[in-house]
Design a protein around this nucleic acid. Structure first.
Ligand SMILES: Nc1ccn([C@H]2C[C@H](O)[C@@H](COP(=O)(O)OP(=O)(O)OP(=O)(O)O)O2)c(=O)n1
Ligand SMILES: [Mg+2]
Ligand SMILES: [Mg+2]
Length: 781
DNA sequence: ACGGGTGGCACA
DNA sequence: TTGTGCCAC
């Protein structure tokens, strides 16, 4: 495939947020305006500037005050404040309307941000040329620029041979289509935009910015040397940051033209193969990155900073803000479900704390089983309590974020509901009459008979409307949110099962095979000191004109390893552990050890092991380094000194430990039918994962189909998965309404275990022997 | 310690 | 299939 085969367009809206505001308030049109958020302090931060204001020197990084200084007439439009934070909904909505217009031209569309999208119109171009090659005329291309040409000359040249198979002719037709696209966007949305037309994404993006606003630019491949001659490296996407700077320094160059002087071999002296290929190709205007088909975002997030004195200290403040974020997320999730018929399965809770005068950012992944705002909030609080709550009962949080993703399509919902109404006879589509449907019935009819109402609610995808009602007041005190109690009436729920469905077609297409000509982690390359290497002669050389070389990945085997190829050896079990699982793996051993330790304390046995454990806990960290005793904190759960930097994972250990005990309790007490159901619904991914990561376990499971082995298998899995859903997994069957009580339950179990007694019911509050602060206090504000 | 809120992605 | 950092808008 030649690198000039495709025709790619990048459409980027002009000063987008400003246009959105101008449309909403036409009085603003033709005035210099800027969109700011949080305008209380120094006029707020500017995030968009329209062109009249740019003419006056207003730029994005300025504060509102600065803008006023340069342009006194400027109109500062505020981003709406909802629930105490900036709310970007109206811009997202506007971007969506634009994308829908674009999609009418081709399904091969990749939304790249709120205000831009790539379109691969190769086929459309060919079709239009077949229909009528002579339809391109200068007057239809009034706002079109062509790098290295006068528009008229370019068109004349394109037509001159009358064969119409020139690459440039494809671009010319692309330009015409782009004009039509932009006209359609303007007509249907009222927004103006600019576009770049090229043979690949990088170039389309690059040239789209050359002429703005309301214009478009074509870049013929032959004009690249001219374009690059004075083009700063920073202008190329992915070279605008630290890596780009390092590149400039290392090679002592500023322009793309200079970069193109470097041979592949030269580059390979400084960069790894993937990066080398990418740089080499980009320096020649070659980029094979496909346009993927994605109209909707893959994730939905919201976050807020609490810098400096605004940091969150008190539990009530943390509770409040995580609630605000959860509320926004829940709202947007609900809307996303209605629009896209999909369900997010995963939520990531992010936070940065001040630890030892340094900002430390972390995140934890949890599984998401309900869109109920209270449950979302509970997940967030749970994570924060585990990782941020200090022993003095306070926090020091500078940033909070919730991000949901891992969407799964909810196809056949309508079929399923009608299925319920009409009974099995009426099932028309044989495709869905399989184990999935069987499972649905099992859950629907067996579930209630063997589990509590709360447990059923956990399985039901709720249709929550009630909580939207009140929390709408803007621009009030940050604590103004009203606390509406959500009435959860199970009778009002619509039952949708989270059916396993085939991979969504659209998403599936966005799955490029691994390549070696992509920019990789830029960080990694900072100090990359490549061993002297012989250049691989198997590289592909393809270009009829033979003036250019195109280094493509010679990938015979796409790195079969479905996962990660880097491992560490576990000191405990000597097994090779994938890097990404290492922390959880350590957690696992730790939990087991602590568990044994406690037992041995009780039985006055095995003092050697106890000693080693205490060593581990007391004076070395997980890297076997001596702990700086000035930076430790006493763990309220085990009373041992933990380096501050490891406090969070240490809490994970305890959490995992508790899980062990709780799970064993569940196995003992729950009816087997419940267990069976639990594990059938426990998602296939667990099974899959084990197939990869631990053959032994897998074999056990397949050999012994008994409940017991299955249970222990999953138990191990849960532990092995630090972040994992842990609670969500067990909570699938356990009331989550109030995680505090849930934790109390764990605590009670733990105490019982320590006392070698058989636990019975979760007790609400078990006072701990006065040794120290119990872990319960961790979870309670 | 104040450009903040979002989103995608590669690596380990 | 997790956590972190980079890059971008
Ligand atoms: N750091 C940034 C950059 C951009 N945006 C938002 C506001 C912009 O309006 C929108 C689109 O970003 P662009 O980079 O495309 O910039 P504009 O559309 O505002 O201007 P241009 O006409 O140059 O594209 O994204 C933002 O919130 N924060
Ligand atoms: Mg724009
Ligand atoms: Mg943009």
């Amino acid at each position: 495939m030649s690198h000039t085969e495709r025709v790619v367009i990048l459409v980027d809206m002009d000063c987008f947020y400003c246009q959105v505001e101008e449309k909403l308030d036409p009085r603003l049109e033709s005035l210099p305006i800027a969109v700011v958020q949080y305008n209380a302090w120094r006029g707020g931060g500017i995030i968009a500037v329209n062109y009249p204001a740019r003419d006056k020197g207003v730029t994005r990084h300025m504060r509102g005050e600065d803008a006023r200084a340069v342009c006194p007439e400027i109109q500062l439009v505020k981003v709406p404040n909802v629930r105490g934070k900036a709310d970007l909904t109206k811009y997202r909505e506007a971007g969506k309307r634009v994308a829908e217009v674009l999609q009418a031209f081709t399904p091969l569309l990749q939304r790249a941000s709120v205000d831009e999208a790539y379109l691969d119109i190769t086929k459309l171009v060919k079709k239009r040329i077949e229909e009528d090659p002579e339809q391109i005329s200068k007057d239809k291309m009034k706002n079109t620029h062509i790098v290295g040409f006068k528009t008229e000359d370019f068109l004349i040249n394109s037509y001159k041979d009358k064969i119409y198979n020139d690459k440039n002719f494809n671009l010319a037709m692309g330009g015409l289509i782009a004009e039509e696209i932009r006209a359609a966007v303007l007509e249907k949305t009222g927004y103006k935009c600019s576009a770049g037309i090229a043979h690949n994404k990088i170039l389309a993006k690059l040239v789209a910015g050359l002429h703005k606003p309301n214009q478009q630019t074509i870049i013929p491949q032959d004009s690249i040397p001219q374009l690059y001659e004075t083009l700063s490296i920073k202008k190329i996407k992915n070279l605008g940051g630290k890596f780009g700077n390092m590149l400039s320094e290392k090679l002592n160059i500023e322009n793309m033209g200079q970069l193109s002087q470097f041979s592949h071999k030269d580059l390979s002296k400084h960069f790894d193969e993937k990066t080398t290929n990418w740089l080499y190709n980009i320096a020649r205007g070659i980029d094979s990155e496909p346009v993927t088909t994605r109209l909707v975002p893959k994730s939905i997030g919201c976050c807020k900073r609490f810098p400096g004195k605004n940091c969150l200290i008190l539990p009530e403040d943390v509770d409040h803000w995580i609630g605000e974020l959860a509320q926004e997320i829940a709202e947007r999730l609900e809307q996303d479900f209605e629009e896209n018929n999909r369900r997010a399965k995963q939520i990531i809770v992010s936070f940065t704390q001040k630890i030892n005068f340094k900002d430390v950012t972390s995140s934890r992944t949890q599984s998401l089983t309900s869109y109920d705002f209270k449950k979302v909030k509970q997940i967030g609080m749970d994570v924060l309590n585990r990782h941020c709550l200090k022993s003095d009962g306070n926090y020091h949080i500078l940033f909070l974020g919730l991000n949901v993703g891992n969407f799964e399509d909810n196809k056949n919902v309508s079929k399923i509901t009608s299925f319920f109404k009409n009974g099995t006879e009426n099932v028309k589509n044989p495709e869905i009459v399989d184990s999935k449907v069987t499972k649905i019935f099992f859950k629907a009819f067996q579930g209630p008979s063997c589990s509590t109402k709360e447990q059923i609610q956990e399985d039901i995808i709720t249709n929550e409307e009630t909580e939207k009602a009140d929390n709408k007041e803007d621009n009030v005190s940050i604590y103004s949110v009203s606390t509406v109690d959500l009435e959860e009436d199970i009778d009002n729920f619509i039952y949708y099962d989270d059916v396993f469905c085939k991979k969504d077609d659209l998403n599936k297409s966005e799955n490029p095979s691994p390549r070696k000509d992509r920019p990789g982690s830029f960080f990694k390359r900072y100090f990359h000191k490549p061993e002297e290497r012989n250049f691989d002669t198997s590289k592909i050389f393809e270009e009829e004109s033979s003036e250019e070389e195109n280094y493509e990945n010679n990938i015979t085997e796409p790195e079969e390893n479905n996962g990660f190829k880097h491992f560490q050896f576990c000191a405990e079990c000597n097994k090779k552990i994938p890097d990404n699982e290492y922390q959880s793996h350590i957690d696992f051993h730790f939990a087991v050890k602590v568990s044994d330790d406690k037992v041995s304390e009780n039985t006055q046995n095995n003092t050697v092991q106890k000693c080693s454990i205490q060593n581990m806990l007391k004076n070395v960290n997980s890297h076997n380094e001596l702990i700086d005793l000035s930076n430790v904190e006493k763990c309220p759960d085990c009373n041992k000194l933990i380096p501050l930097s490891e406090v969070q994972s240490h809490k994970d250990y305890h959490f995992a430990l508790k899980l062990v005990k709780e799970e064993s309790h569940i196995y003992k007490t729950k009816p087997s039918i419940l267990n069976t159901e639990k594990y059938t619904t426990a998602t296939k991914t667990k099974n899959k994962k084990v197939e990869k990561s631990n053959k032994n376990l897998k074999r056990k499971v397949s050999e012994i189909k008994s409940n017991i082995s299955l249970k222990s298998f999953f138990k191990t899995e849960d532990l092995n998965n630090d972040n994992s859903t842990i609670c969500s997994t067990c909570c699938k069957r356990i009331k989550l309404e109030d995680f505090g009580s849930h934790v109390d339950f764990h605590e009670a179990r733990k105490l019982h275990n320590q006392l070698n007694s058989t636990p019975t019911t979760p007790s609400k509050k078990v006072e701990k022997p006065n040794t120290s602060k119990g872990i319960v206090s961790y979870f309670k504000p």
